[in-house]
Amino acid sequence: MTITLHDFELSGNCYKLRLLMSILQLRYDIVPVDFFPGREHKSDAFLRLNPFGQLPVLQDGDLTLSDSGAILAYLARRYDASGQWFPDDPAVTAEVLRWHAVADDITATASAARLALGFDYPFDLEKTQAGAHRIFRIIDEHLWFGEKSGRDWLASPAHPTTADIACFPYVMLSEEGGISRQDYPALRRWTDRVRRIPGFIVMSGIFPAGPALPAA
């Protein structure tokens, strides 16, 4: 079976899937979609794939899926033999899904601010920026107390999950929306950790972190 990703390079939601598939070492084809300036995601052909007119769309054999969070869960359940990325435990599943929802809130705020400033979208800049700051404050606090108790990731397991992948891209791209992360030092440290996950790849706008201190 072949996996096909309908993809736009500058989309953080598409990148979530490229990132997980790289970490899981999955092979896939890319169908580039001219999201900007072509607005191809509103074309008839694309709307037949996803009536919501949104990227990303992933096809796996006969299956056509949309929504990055849903697809992350699908890929992890289907292809992650370790079971770590989207754990089975009901409580952890709920926790991860909670963060997938936060990721959508980040898309609605930080990503919207980026679209407003970079891609001429008619969003309310001040409102989206303020919304992103509100979310970042909470995540920073969560991660700061996590560090104090030995938790490095958004969800409670001792390893990263799709929760981290879902929230990462638009946190990292927030400055393009005029949202500084200077006030969120724990959030900044977490972005270093995500960038050091084996198999990590970049997208345009996100630079790699250098290597961690080698264990003595």
């Binding site: 992360r181 200077q182 900044r188």
Partner: peptide
């Protein structure tokens, strides 16, 4: 300008 814990190895902290 920072807590000591804000500065793990191999990290750059942004301050003001």
């Amino acid at each position: 300008i920072a807590s000591s814990d804000d500065l793990p190895f191999r990290h750059v902290y942004q301050g003001q």
